[in-house]
Amino acid sequence: MSCCGQKRNENRQQEQRRAAGAVYNYTPPKMWEDVQFEYTGKTALTVNGSITGKRYRFEHTGSKLVIDYRDAAGMTGIPVLRKVK
């Protein structure tokens, strides 16, 4: 028969093992709306978002993509992209 102290330690160890293997998929709520950009260049363009690291691929002239609001400020510095209202 085990005593209470051993059972407590066993429960604590099980809890620690569960916590160590836990994966948290927390997505914070969006603070602003995402922004649409149009590509005006002549060939395809791939841009990595400066904040999210997400890859945005504009296939041809006139391609429009919705860009995460966190990456939008960096996109405004690219001459061949224009913000769509």
Rank of each mutant, 00 (worst) to 15 (best):
T76W: 06
G49L: 12
H60L: 06
P79F: 02
I51P: 00
A44M: 10
L65F: 08
G41R: 00
I51D: 02
R57C: 10
K54V: 14
V47I: 15
G49H: 08
K64H: 06
L65H: 04
G77F: 11
T52E: 01
T76F: 07
R70A: 11
T76E: 14
V66P: 02
Y69W: 15
H60S: 14
M75G: 05
T46C: 09
V66I: 15
I78H: 06
A44Q: 14
A72E: 10
F58T: 01
K83P: 00
R57S: 08
T52C: 01
G53Q: 04
G74W: 05
L65S: 05
L45F: 01
I78C: 07
R57I: 11
D68M: 08
G53M: 04
D68T: 13
L45I: 02
T61S: 09
M75Q: 05
K42R: 09
D71E: 03
A44P: 03
S50C: 09
A44Y: 11
M75C: 14
P79E: 02
K83L: 09
N48G: 03
L65I: 05
T46V: 12
G49R: 10
L45G: 00
F58W: 06
I67W: 07
T46R: 15
T52V: 03
L45Q: 00
K54I: 15
V80D: 12
V80P: 01
N48W: 08
M75E: 04
T40F: 03
V47C: 10
L65K: 04
A44E: 14
T40V: 07
T52M: 01
G49Q: 11
V80I: 03
R57A: 09
G53C: 03
K54M: 13
T40G: 05
P79L: 02
K64V: 14
G53R: 02
L45R: 01
T52A: 03
T43H: 06
L45P: 00
L65Y: 05
L81G: 00
F58H: 04
